[in-house]
Design a binder for these strands. Structure first.
Lengths: 673, 673
DNA sequence: TTGTGGGCATCGAGCCGACAA
DNA sequence: TTGTCGGCTCGATGCCCACAA
């Protein structure tokens, strides 16, 4: 709209985005959490999320337009096309996607398709050679230029000729629209610093940057400088569309999707990562993967958020409820059907509802769940065999792909009529059933517990002690299910297993008072030795531990997986663990990391064992005494005033949080800087 | 988004349009042609027009989305609510309307309802105390201020104290968002002039005004100054919506309307008068009125357009076709179903297709059409009487309100199977039938012309000479239908009728070489005398000439009407003529204007006679020699290569254009300045 | 009557180091 | 290491009239 300033600083304007937008720069501007599904892959489209995006951009609650088109809450689509764009006025990044709903009857769900789809799983395209700075008042004032952080200047900018007095050069960087900006880069002042002076203010005013907004510089493969902006989350001017009412937009989204779904014809959507509260086009693989997460009340999870300085941070939270976000118009939708609470009080801007695929469950015994366990085809009514019976038992415990491709609402929730204990028992049985080497039929406890027992803690206790005894995993850790004292239990663990010692080591790093003079280097060596012995312990068993590591150009990740395969023809139980690094991992670090991962996985296994014990004891003693020392927990809660079930949930959450923290601290201390 | 500049010039910002927008200012910014239907009235909503608006704002052709919702091309609605808005960023004006489709089965169409609805007919709300200036390069440069046109300053601004040296004052004006702007108003320079200096440039830069944009000042009822802007039609930045694809918008419009239509529920639309190529919410009365216009190929019409300087101008055009704008998706739609050509070659930016209600037909013999002629109820099949027969004859000649409220497509088009001559004959017969004092039945010529005649010009000639002899209107002008030479014909006209002399006088003003020393004052006197005699000629006849003049506060118009009433109990044939003035008409000018109007109407009658002759001759000679001298026409077209029908249409158009120009020049010379 | 440009005063944009967080 | 400030310079802003269309 505006002609480029006369001083010629922004030059070479590409008329109307002829040249496609630089992907690296786009992703840098979009933020570290944004990843786009790849073209050609299968995705799940959520109309509710799409509407949220429009509502957010209009800064307007969407009116109560009924979903009269009977559009399903999600559409499985083929993603034909993804193109990157940037608003010419505001530099806002957005992506245009062409989706084509997959015909219901053609939807074939088999492992191969899923695996193939997994190839197109998101990659974090955050460029490595970049820096991002939030602008200060001085940076944006007309009084001066831009103060470049020293590290950033040295890493990204062409090196200055320090023989000059003062050292200075012309810096040319291209923005999203392929427009070149030329700044004077000078190293001066007392003490010396890197500054961008001439033309900087033109850039600021042209882009209408304010203090709090961010600029980012990238050095791409060709060593060319790229320049992007990322505006603060301050209130935006509400996109006052003067041509289309929000109602029409709302209904337009529904109708476009409904029309496409009815005809299996392509439709086009815009995804604006900075405007949208959440992604609404999810890679099918990611979605499917998330389906295996068994969510339940009180479950602990992590979720990634973007920090001020272009970084990411995981926040911990607890699931406080599972229910339809909009029970009237979008019944049984998986969109934001999980109500959550956040650990930190500064969680004002974090959502109170999330979707399954947004969260990373923190491993607990309840989430061990065999993939591909359920038969591919829906059970025929009246089928009398054991498998059908087992299926009923595990309904709710095992995510499955039904006719409508997905869990049908209530199935993924807790059984409303069951107590927590009953439910837990079921979980244990399901695990038992799938991980023991004998695929024998274990009767459903849920069905057999009389109501009278559920409502009487003392009777429950005795019942519990009968049924919750766990099978010992081979190559693993023998736990005493009947131990009543947590101290004793922990001591027993420490004595019986080397792994518990490792766990205690990590705890000592942060909370416990023992081992104050902890030596990291020495500890790592110790760990390596122990991992080695662990491996030896596990390898000869009937279970297998597998490890994978991948390192692509853009993201560096190492993935570990434990597959517990009782028999060769039965689907394996698996645990996963991932490491992501922004910087490439040095070759010599690889083996170390691999072993760390292996160990972490084993720890997870171990924690699950411990937690099973804890939960069992919990219900015996009703949190008079916590199995794990956690003073905070004691101080915060007054248990006497709460009903038994709530105490149980709370105690569980706290235990899980505590253990998860141990894991995380461990990881943090190990992650390469 | 942007904070107001620090110098405090724009003050008192109303947060987010609490206060409703000043209606006068809104209309001034919207333009002189924009009028909104009043709340509570009935309107006709055209989805196609709505989509055009979005397409225009997106600067994108809408993709071929089928109208799969089977939405009718128009919806009769009750207009519940109209609110005025202005874009906070650009000051673009737009209106939000809540429409509720009227249930088909409840739609009652009777004259009373129509009359009642007519009350809510649009009023041109252009304020009287306002001025509008297109900004010059100097006005928008940083070098200086704003040069206020003398008249405007004296009319609108508070009067300066001329005892001061120099005379100056502070001028405060509020914009659409109720933000006050304070300018220094000074009267200085050699020669003296009114200038706005201090703070003017802040206004220009804040509103991002460029040379070519317009500013307008209004003094409202409370004598407060209001300030608006109107941007030039230069290419706008294409509203790159980063959240919603144009497809979704398109389908959203369809779906919202379809949903509302299906449920008779309200829906909301935005009407942006400066972005939209045409109004798409039409007052029912206006629409209904327009239905009585008999459109036909070659018909002459006027249409209002906005001029540079906030004024209006009528352009003349000719109907070149009648067909569906979008025959696939919107069959039988009345939206832009009229193809037109424009008289002036500078008609690049005028539409090639218009809708019925946009045009004012210029009365010609073909458009004489008795209102309320047709029986109120659709004809019963098998009715054998004359009236039914006549109805068949006039099918297409008389707009009627059928069951579906409106003309059902093809009826309003030319009979596809008929030649132009056949069709013209019909028109003439229809006129004959309705305007002669004997309502005798005249057999339809269309039905009796054999195809062989149509395809043979020579035979057509003889046929034509038999059938096209026109009845002489009493008090009118005797024309010789069989005169073969145009020169002779014109000469005869000049000798036989005083009116033809007037016509020639007007022609002489512009195109013909005779009467070079034309004296306007003298001519007007002459005209008056002749009009007087004309009146005397007409008055004693059985036809009546009526005149009306109206002068409301906002628009000053004088309207003339000739009612030709053959008998007292038959509906009159009428011609209308309107004068509109932006400034009040002085009292002493009134009688003069009245007579001008009367004369113009008579001229129209006369032209119609002439044209009938011309068209008859045209088909005899197939434009070997034009009845009216028009060299341009000869040069442009090579008739030998065109089929007969096309030549006829072209020649007709040119003749009509020529005569229309005569009328217009006459009008121009008479209109008070 | 009014658009444009030269003359000229003034203000703020923008470059510098000092200083402190 | 870097955010903010005072000092300083210079060019753009903006007010004036002359001149001409």
């Amino acid at each position: 709209m505006k002609a480029p300033p006369a001083n010629g600083s922004p030059a070479n304007p590409a008329e109307g985005e002829r040249k496609s937008i630089n992907s690296e720069l786009w992703h840098a501007c979009a933020g570290p959490l944004v990843s786009l599904p790849t073209a050609g892959s299968q995705v799940v489209y959520f109309p509710q999320g799409h509407i949220e995006q429009v509502a957010a951009s209009m800064q307007k609650e969407m009116d109560a337009i009924p979903n009269y088109l009977s559009l399903p809450s999600k559409l499985i689509c083929v993603l034909h096309n993804v193109t990157l764009h940037a608003d010419t006025e505001t530099d806002e990044v957005f992506a245009q996607m062409t989706l084509q709903p997959v015909d219901k009857f053609l939807q074939k769900y088999d492992r191969e398709a899923l695996m193939a789809s997994e190839m197109g799983l998101e990659q974090n395209k955050q460029p490595t050679e970049f820096f991002c700075k939030t602008l200060t008042a001085s940076d944006t004032s007309t009084h001066g230029g831009f103060s470049v952080p020293r590290r950033a200047a040295e890493k990204i900018f062409p090196h200055l000729d320090f023989t000059l007095q003062p050292p200075a050069q012309e810096l040319v960087a291209k923005d999203l629209h392929d427009i070149s900006w030329t700044f004077r880069h000078i190293y001066r002042g007392q003490p010396k610093r890197h500054l961008l002076t001439t033309s900087w203010s033109v850039f600021v005013s042209t882009k209408r940057l304010l203090a709090g907004d961010s600029v980012l510089f990238i050095r791409d493969e060709k060593s060319e400088l790229l320049l992007g902006i990322r505006r603060a989350n301050r209130q935006q001017p509400a996109l006052s569309s003067s041509v289309l009412s929000s109602d029409s937009m709302h209904i337009g989204i529904l109708a476009a999707a409904a029309h496409a779904a009815a005809n299996s014809s392509p439709f086009t959507i815009f995804y604006n990562p900075r405007a949208s509260p959440a992604e609404f086009v999810i890679p099918l693989a990611k979605y499917t993967k998330a389906l295996y997460t068994q969510v339940s009340l009180g479950m602990r999870f992590r979720m990634m958020f973007e920090t001020e300085e272009c970084g990411v941070r995981r926040y911990m939270g607890t699931i406080t409820g599972i229910s339809d976000f909009d029970p009237v118009r979008w019944k049984d939708s998986q969109w934001r059907n999980i109500q959550v609470g956040w650990d930190e009080s500064t969680a004002a801007d974090r959502p109170t509802r999330v979707s399954l695929w947004e969260i990373e469950p923190v491993a607990t015994p309840f989430y061990i769940c065999p993939p591909f366990f359920r038969p591919k085809f829906p059970k025929q009514p009246g089928m009398p065999d054991d498998e059908a019976e087992a299926e009923n038992t595990f309904k709710g415990a095992i995510p499955c792909l039904g006719d409508d491709f997905g869990i049908k609402g209530t199935q993924s929730q807790l059984f409303p009529g069951l107590s927590l204990v009953q439910w837990m028992t079921m979980q244990q049985n399901s695990r038992l059933n799938s991980s023991t080497s004998q695929p024998t039929y274990v009767p459903s406890m849920a069905a057999s517990i009389p109501d009278s027992i559920c409502n009487d803690p003392t009777r429950l206790l005795s019942f519990q002690s009968h049924t919750s005894s766990l099978p010992n995993l081979q190559g693993g850790f023998k736990l005493n299910p009947s131990s009543q004292q947590s101290d004793q239990h922990q001591k027993a663990q420490q004595q019986n297993s080397t792994k518990i010692q490792i766990q205690q080591k990590q705890e000592s790093l942060t909370h416990l008072k023992q081992d104050k003079h902890y030596n990291q280097q020495q500890d790592q060596q110790q760990i390596l030795t122990k991992v080695q012995s662990l491996n030896e312990q596990l390898q000869p068993s009937s279970y297998q531990i597998q490890q994978q590591q991948t390192q692509t150009q853009n993201s560096h990740s190492i993935q570990g997986e434990i597959l517990l395969s009782p028999t060769s023809h039965q689907s394996p139980v698996h645990f996963q663990s991932n490491y992501h690094f922004q910087q490439p991992v040095e070759q010599q670090q690889h083996s170390l990391l691999q072993q760390q991962i292996q160990m972490q996985l084993l720890q997870t296994l171990q924690h699950q064992q411990v937690l099973s014990q804890i939960s069992a004891q919990l219900h015996c003693k009703l949190s008079q005494q916590l199995p794990v020392q956690n003073q905070q927990f004691h101080q915060q809660q007054n248990f006497q005033q709460l009903p038994a079930h709530q105490i149980a949930v709370l105690a569980m959450s706290q235990c899980l949080a505590y253990l998860a923290k141990c894991c995380k601290n461990f990881r943090t201390s190990m992650t390469c800087k």
